[in-house]
């Protein structure tokens, strides 16, 4: 039975174009227990690790997704012309601030960066890396920003907790 479940889940992972969550898989496979699904996902992930093939199973944005190993990027780029993920250093800094300090309003971001961020925020919104959560009930009712699921998907993050802590970053910063 578990072999069968494994194959079913593998086929679903193969076809899905978004990360599949355990909950979603549970809905698709009513006969399987949550525990079993988790075990299967782990088993698949280990299989791919042992096999060391062209792809692996990544836990991203709360779900699971088959992705190519970074080693083969060069070859994949010969086949497809991906939408290049190019953001400026300034945009990446703004994104990092939002990721760590969310929910956050524009003036707080600008205070950290010391410069105007209006254009960058608009670009990040357009690229669906950030979203508007609502308005803060202070004078001027500024918009509150947070990162999106797409942000997690693009940056290969399980969830926001997957981001290194400020202490870890500091350690990284000191080493450079």
């Amino acid at each position: 039975m578990i072999e069968d479940t494994k194959n079913i889940i593998e086929s679903l992972l193969f076809v899905s174009d978004t990360p599949l969550t355990v909950d979603h898989l549970k809905k698709l496979l009513p006969f399987a227990e949550t525990k079993e699904i988790r075990e299967v996902l782990l088993a698949l992930s280990e299989e791919y690790e042992t096999r060391k093939g062209g792809f692996f199973l990544r836990e991203v944005a709360g779900g699971y997704q088959i992705r190519t190993r970074p080693e083969y990027t060069k070859w994949i780029k010969r086949l497809i012309r991906p939408n290049p993920f190019r953001v400026s250093k300034a945009a990446l800094e703004t994104l990092a601030i939002i990721a760590y300090k969310q929910p956050i309003i524009r003036s707080d971001i600008e205070q950290i960066r010391g410069v105007d961020c209006g254009g960058i925020l608009r670009m990040l919104l357009e690229r669906k890396l950030i979203r508007v959560l609502g308005r803060k009930e202070i004078p001027g009712r500024p918009l509150i920003y947070a990162t999106t699921k797409q942000f997690l998907e693009i940056f290969d993050l399980k969830d926001l907790k997957d981001l290194p802590t400020p202490e870890e970053i500091e350690a990284l910063g000191n080493s450079t």
């Binding site: 990544r58 991906p82 800094e93």
Partner: peptide, 30 residues
């Protein structure tokens, strides 16, 4: 700290840059 955080983000396996998913858009074909 935020600058380091940004560098850290840039160093991750970015989807569409370092890692890819199977269902690439047809328009992506180079």
């Amino acid at each position: 700290q935020m600058k380091s955080a940004a560098e850290h983000l840039a160093a991750r396996d970015i989807l569409g840059e370092n890692t890819f998913v199977r269902s690439a858009d047809k328009e992506d074909y180079s």
